[in-house]
Design a protein around this nucleic acid. Structure first.
Lengths: 158, 158
DNA sequence: AGTGAAATTGTACTGGC
DNA sequence: GCCAGTACAATTTCACT
């Protein structure tokens, strides 16, 4: 199951390219990594089959849809309502503004990553859909400045 | 610039599918949304041209590569070293374990999203590459339980 | 103008070396 | 792991609502 397939430098090169742009044709990818198309295709097939590449997804920019403000909302649940965690998670995921929900350790229980139009919109979400939930003890907002800086999964020298 | 192109329900349907799996063929996508291939292709082309779809990326699962533990590291910088923020960000992105860096408001200045092999590995990163940096005042770790639950960008009823 | 159908060009993918 | 063939899909063109 967790048989971490060991990747060679060419595999990492392929992953580097595909994490940046997976709409590249196999032909162009093969050229960039210096492989014939059939070999390159087989490499990609294996990376998918072994679960290293878990999927290929279109990235939608919320800012292009008028939702240019992103934030993390750190939520603490009431101790005696922890059994309602699943209810909370379901409600959080049902919010159309939600991008991701992280169940975390530490003083807070959940991090919600949301994309909203402006601070008023954010305030409305928190007041109407989070702070008023009985299982929620506290919600702390962290506005995200600029754009999130996203890196790729890279090899870690063991 | 920020001309939020108004999308109809079919566009949202397309976005919903492509955010889940962008490796679907245009033909299959057209069938699922009930459109001829040419119309569907044109819709997708426009979504890309207007920046709504900012890219197509392969999703790499760190767990399949032996990095099954993820965490947020909330970092607070020293007030009188804020001008070194760019240096810190560069260092954070250079860490191969880093997935994303968020510059946030609130008591903390940065959230680092990292993927590591285990808690010892995480400890090593923090001690060797974060806590010892002169501009870093404090680093608080939030382990991420389970898998992050990721949603898609969806329409928000205005 | 944007949608529906068909033809062409190119690539993805499967056999064999 | 590399080469060549076959089938299929992406993309353009044209007619229509």
């Amino acid at each position: 199951m967790t048989e971490k397939a060991s990747l060679d430098p060419v595999d990492w090169h392929i992953l580097s390219v595909l994490q940046d742009d997976a709409s590249i044709t196999n032909k162009a990818l093969a050229e960039r990594v210096g492989l014939p198309t059939s070999s390159c295709h087989e490499r990609v097939r294996r990376l998918r089959a072994t679960g290293v590449i878990s999927g290929v997804k279109a990235v939608v920019d919320p800012a292009a849809l008028g939702r240019g403000l992103q934030a993390f909302i750190a939520v603490r649940l009431r101790l005696h309502r922890r059994e309602l965690a699943e209810v909370f998670v379901a409600a959080a995921l049902a919010l159309p503004e939600t991008l991701s929900v992280y169940n975390v350790s530490g003083p807070e229980d959940y991090f919600l990553h949301v994309a909203v139009t402006d601070s008023a919109h954010l305030q409305r979400i928190i007041v109407d859909h989070l702070a008023t939930r009985p299982e929620v003890a506290h919600a702390q907002t962290h506005l995200i400045f600029d754009r999130p800086l996203t890196a790729t999964v890279r090899p870690v020298p063991s």
